[in-house]
Every structure is written in C-alpha cells, then in structure tokens.
Design a binder for these strands. Structure first.
Ligand code: FES
Ligand code: FES
Lengths: 146, 146
DNA sequence: AAATTAAAGGATAAAATTGTCCGGTATTTA
DNA sequence: TAAATACCGGACAATTTTATCCTTTAATTT
C-alpha cells in the first residue's frame, strides 16, 4: 500500500505527536526504538518532513523532534503521505494507465474510484494529534510487543 | 497500489481474455503492443501466470496465450494479484506493523479495515472474463490513445 | 570559549524491482 | 525431417527503494 519510508514516517510522526502532546521532545534514537525502524533511514524521512514543515526539529542538547500544537491539530495523514510518496497512489489508475480519467477509463475504473476516494477521505480527515491520542489511550500501537 | 508487474499482468490477462472470448489466441508481441508494456518483462509475468494456471500458453507457430472458457469464467483479479504480488497488500497493516490484528492494532486499523475489505471484495468478485467484456464493449481501455 | 549533544546533509552500499538478452525447447508447416 | 515460429528459462543490467556511515552545522552546557 504505502512505501516503507511512508510507513516509518507516519509511525514516527504519530509517536512524536504523542510525546509532544505531553510536552516532551524526542530524539531520533528514541523514535526509532519506539516504532521499530532503522535509525539512519528514519532520520532521512524525518528530514523530509521537517523540510515540508509537517514537523519541527531542534538541534543540540535537549534537541530533537516535536510537533507544535498547531501541527498536532492540523497536519493530516494525507500531508505525510504526499510529502513522502507523492500523489501517485492517491490519484493514479489501479491498472497503471498513464492517467486515471473517465475519458479512457480502465475496466476497473468505476469500481475502483469509490474505494480510492474513501482512502483519500480517510487520510484527509485524520490528524496526527488525533492518532497520537489513540496511542496515548492504549487503543493503538506503533510497534508490536511479543 | 499494485506493482508494475501486477499492473502489466492484469492488463495482459484482460486483453488475452478479450481475444480468447473471440476464439483468438494471441502472441507476446501483440499483447505488449496492445497494453503498452515492455515485451520481455511482460513475458516473465505471463510465465508466472501460466505456471499458476491462471492462463494457458501454446508453443510454436500459431501458438500464443489464451484463456480457456473455464479460466475466463473463474479466474479472478484477486488470483492474479496474489500470484504476482503475494497477499501482503491484501492482508498487511497500513502502517507496516509486522501483522495486522485486533490484538495490537495500529492507530489506523479500525478505519482502514473496511476499505481494505472492500478492495478485497472488489478483486474477489471480478473475473477476467467480465472485465474482458467491458473492454470488448468499449467501456474500458487497456492503454490510452492520444 | 570549549566541549558536548543532536539533527542535517552528502556519499555510499545493499536489496528489491523493473527491464533486457539470448540460447533452449516444443510445435507447426513445408 | 528440416526450417520456422513462439514460449521457456536463465543470466544479466538498469533503476528505484531501502539502508548505512560519516562529516558538518547548530545549539546547549560547562
Ligand atoms: S482509469 Fe484506471 S482507475 Fe481510473
Ligand atoms: S494493524 Fe494496522 S491496519 Fe490492522
């Protein structure tokens, strides 16, 4: 569905959000450990998200990553996905036609569209803050414990 | 969404199905031209599908690929996807957790599940023959003309 | 100011996916 | 039975994705 980069990015953002909601700034090492992702690769993704202004970073001691209250409230899953994977999967044709349109639709087009639309809606209507709360309340997990 | 291999595989299968419905067996060259895919790569994918018995091939002059009436009627999109991409995207967690389950769900789990289920249902309930008819009737396309 | 801390950025490497090439094999036609 | 056709199979190459390492930059603490 999403790329590994995107999966890590989303999980990281949610974890950072959860901690930011509690006023805690978190470092890369901590993040990678808590979401079970490769540290250096996660760093690259977080850099992208910082550049896209979807989260905030601070250098030096006591530094790390955080989400401002505004970011927590307004940044959506969709923004993360677009920043990392681009819009292709949110707009592209299911069968890989160069563009998805009703002019020359693929044979799955009309069946596929409503599902893709629901996915778009899902991503558009969920903020990092909202998902972070869910984790905070123990209703969702960012890695699996055995 | 799907891999390139899967996109080519589905488009190819539908085209072969369309021709088979008219009693015509088709060769690789023809297929690749009609669905706008790289010839040699498409060959690899078709080999997989033949091995999985989702379509049939005949060697030699007048040879090529075809779908038996039974294959046309019974082979689903889902079978193609599973044969090429594996079941990961049809069962895996949206955020990449090692497994999707209600025991330790990711924060998107309950929102994501219905969409994934619809996608599964979509793939499960559409046969190659059905999609081939759509193309035959001019209601769907396997490549785009400009 | 010096030392320490932690993210940023660049270069590289490994792995997976996508794509090509070519000799082998089965089948048909002459 | 020889030649031609077209899929099969293995090796190989290019590209993209995933992942690592190391130096630089910025900020804090001593
Ligand atoms: S044209 Fe294929 S999904 Fe719209
Ligand atoms: S656990 Fe993530 S989708 Fe089910």
């Amino acid at each position: 569905m999403f790329s590994k980069a995107c999966e890590y990015g989303i999980r990281a953002a949610i974890y950072i959000g959860q901690q930011s909601a509690g006023g805690r700034r978190v470092g890369l090492k901590d993040i990678a450990a808590e979401i079970d992702s490769p540290e250096a690769f996660t760093a690259k993704i977080l850099q992208q998200l910082v550049r896209a202004q979807l989260l905030t970073s601070v250098k030096g001691p006591t530094g790390g990553f955080e989400l401002t209250p505004e970011q927590l409230r307004t940044v959506t899953l969709r923004q993360l996905v677009v920043a990392i994977d681009g819009g292709a999967m949110l707009q592209g044709c299911a069968l890989g036609l160069p563009q998805c349109s009703a002019q020359q639709p693929c044979p799955m087009h009309y069946q596929f569209l409503p599902i893709r639309d629901q996915l778009n809606e899902l991503l558009r209507t969920h903020t990092i803050g909202e998902l972070a709360s869910k984790v905070q309340e123990g209703l969702g997990f960012l890695k699996q414990f055995s």
